[in-house]
């Protein structure tokens, strides 16, 4: 019963996992952004409300990906996997919009 002759593959999990403190700071930042989203709903800015909300959402997503998912520090494989997830989400959104944006308005005679 030899050890496997195949070259062992190891999962290199980045330099080090994020510390408890950085996790907590990320949490605080996320909560702050959540507050900002809720707050912005009370300020009428027209179409800019949507822009602001999407911007905040992107910021939140980046925090989660960079700190919680360690995408910045970990191996490129992990980034690739995460990107595949995004590509699939983009697919859902794109083909979903293909429906929503091309619906013909109903006009009576």
């Amino acid at each position: 019963m030899n050890a496997r002759t195949r070259q062992p593959r190891s999962h290199r999990s980045g330099p080090r996992p994020p510390s408890l403190a950085s996790n907590l700071w990320a949490l605080v930042a996320l909560l702050a952004l959540l507050g900002l989203t809720a707050g912005s709903a009370f300020i009428p800015m027209g179409a800019f409300n949507t822009v602001a909300n999407v911007g905040i959402a992107v910021a939140k997503a980046l925090i989660v990906m960079i700190i919680y998912m360690r995408l910045a520090t970990d191996s490129p494989l992990l980034r690739m996997v995460a990107m595949a997830g995004f590509a699939w989400l983009a697919l859902l959104v794109a083909l979903g919009l293909a429906d929503l944006l091309t619906r013909v308005p109903l006009l009576g005679s």
């Binding site: 179409a47 949507t50 919009l97 929503l100 944006l101 619906r103």
Partner: peptide, 9 residues
Amino acid sequence: TSADSATLN
């Protein structure tokens, strides 16, 4: 507007 387009209805 984008909001309109997203959910046209």
